[in-house]
Design a protein around this nucleic acid. Structure first.
Length: 469
RNA sequence: GUGGUCUUAGCUCAGUUGGUUAGAGCGUCUGAUUGUGGUUCAGAAGGUCGUGGGUUCGAGCCCCAUAUUCCACCCCA
């Protein structure tokens, strides 16, 4: 049989020891901040019923869902169906899916969370604040900063409509990225403002059309957006009104005042402006109290976020990185639990894109140089069986007092010490305790600092004392 | 889903219009050094040129298919 080279599925990666230490350092940072704000941990299964996932992410989202083939004779139910009899009519096979797959891999953490809230509503204390750090899967085509398996770090609050929650989430973004030393930009918009713009410019029915088009403003420019909207029957004067609104320049306060005036005929739009004003006002107050410089960038062309958002929407990008796509995003959703039979529960949440944050930090060299593949502080080195045995109690004692210590398992007749020091060096273990005939006779070790090359004869207790500091 | 791109030693990459036995650096192994790594010197091993077809006297190089990498669009963390 031919030997085949093993490969990974497209868009997935292994994480080696060093990668993983770095990823864990990011996770710890984010998790600690989440805890500081009172969020509780939650994990949900990798797979959900397709009925839970489908229809929550828009048409595009459904296409990107990974579907899991039913086990057993999964084609039978299809064969038994009328669709099979009429198979010639749906030769593309799209309808087969519902007969052969009923589970899928989760696409994000928000929808499974909504499902969890609905299923456990009687036991939860509201407002319920949970964080969740797990992988999600999307059948996208991979490219820079885009993977088919990637990790999200989410914090959500459900059961409260208060904008205080938005303030907390903005503050979380600031805490995390400040600690990670990532220079970031947090852009904010509000779906209600987008609705207001649609009402004022043409009609509320065009909110999606407008949102999708102006979201591309950065990429295709004003001309491109005008062209795209003109194809959707927008008149020249309507387009002029639109750009008058979204292109206003100045500081945040001025822009909002201007917008408030432009949207005064729209009740929803006015509400959106008030919400953003509230956020800006309070961020400023908090900044004054803490000397922080939390900063929002108003961006009325920001339409992103999944289709379930209804209020504030957030998006974070790293400023000094070549990665243009977002490293975080979120927003408020008023109707997500309604899909599962629990209406009138508003939620708001944010997400950190772990893999993209990793990419940015790697590019900008932001990881601490002290991150190593192993935590081992000391390797006990020996020359033969006798000195190896002499080392064993020492290793045990080192570990007993909490010092990560190793002993090389194999005894090599030739160049034993060289092999062991090579090993320590390759793993960046900082110390070696060497024992041979001489050390055994005096009941000591030769402690070598592998960074400086300096070495001393010491008793084990002295070594412990030194390493514990 | 659409378009482009990459693939040669463990790793990073050279390889002339198609012409003998496909190269380098790093890494690995051995020795200089039988109680000392990381530095130095000498030597060695390591390849079905992504895979499958085709053109040709002859293919790493040309053609077709396919996989993979990376990138852009759509969309998104």
């Amino acid at each position: 049989m031919a030997i085949q080279k093993p490969t990974l599925p497209k868009g997935t990666r292994d994480f080696g020891p060093l990668d993983l230490q770095k990823r864990k350092s990011i996770i710890k940072n984010i998790e600690d901040v989440f805890k500081k704000y009172g969020f509780m941990p939650l994990e949900t299964p990798a797979m959900e019923n397709l009925s839970t996932l489908e229809g929550k992410y828009g048409e595009e989202g459904d296409k990107l869902l990974y579907r899991i083939l039913n086990s057993g004779n999964f084609l039978q139910s299809y064969k038994d169906s009328t669709d099979y009899t009429n198979a010639i009519d749906n030769i593309e096979g799209k309808d087969i899916v519902k007969y052969i797959a009923e589970k899928g891999l989760r696409y994000d953490l928000t929808v499974p969370f909504a499902r969890y809230v609905v299923m456990n509503r009687s036991q939860l204390v509201f407002p319920f604040k949970r964080y969740q750090i797990q992988p999600v899967w999307r059948a996208d085509r991979p490219q820079k900063g885009r993977y088919r398996e990637f990790w999200q770090c989410d914090a959500d609050i459900v059961g409260s409509e208060s904008l205080i929650n938005e303030l907390d989430l903005i503050s979380i973004y600031h805490d995390v990225f400040t600690q990670l030393k990532i220079n970031y930009e947090l852009r904010v918009n509000n779906r209600k403002i987008l609705a207001g713009i649609a009402e004022v410019v043409k009609s509320i029915d065009y909110i999606t059309t407008i949102a999708v088009a102006i979201d591309k403003l950065d990429k295709i420019g004003e001309e491109g957006v005008r062209k795209e909207l003109a194809e959707s029957a927008f008149t020249e004067s309507e387009l002029n009104t639109l750009f008058e609104i979204i292109k206003s320049k100045g500081n945040n306060q001025f822009i909002l005042e201007n917008l408030k005036d432009k949207l005064k005929t729209s009740e929803t739009g006015t509400k959106g402006v008030e919400e953003l004003s509230f956020l800006l006002q309070n961020i400023e107050n908090c900044n004054r109290a803490t000397n922080n410089a939390v900063n929002l960038k108003l961006d009325f062309s920001l339409a992103r976020g999944l289709s379930y958002y209804t209020g504030c929407i957030f998006e974070v990008t790293a400023l000094d990185s070549s990665l243009m796509s977002s490293i975080g995003g979120g927003g408020r959703y008023d109707n997500l639990t309604e899909n599962f039979g629990l209406p009138n529960v508003s939620g708001v949440g944010i997400s950190f894109g772990l893999d993209r944050i990793y990419d940015v930090m790697e590019e900008l060299n932001l990881f601490s140089a002290s991150i190593r593949t192993t935590q081992s502080k000391i390797l006990c080195c020996f020359f033969d069986e006798k000195s190896q045995e002499y080392c064993l109690p020492a290793v045990t004692k080192l570990r007993a007092v909490g010092i990560a210590a190793e002993i090389y398992p194999d005894v090599n007749r030739k160049k034993a010490i060289v092999k062991q020091l090579d090993y320590a060096n390759a793993l960046q273990i900082p110390f070696a305790a060497i024992a041979g005939e001489n050390e055994i006779n005096q009941n000591v070790f030769t402690l070598k600092n592998l960074l400086t090359g300096e070495q001393n004869t010491l008793k084990l207790d002295d070594i412990i004392q030194m390493l514990k500091e």
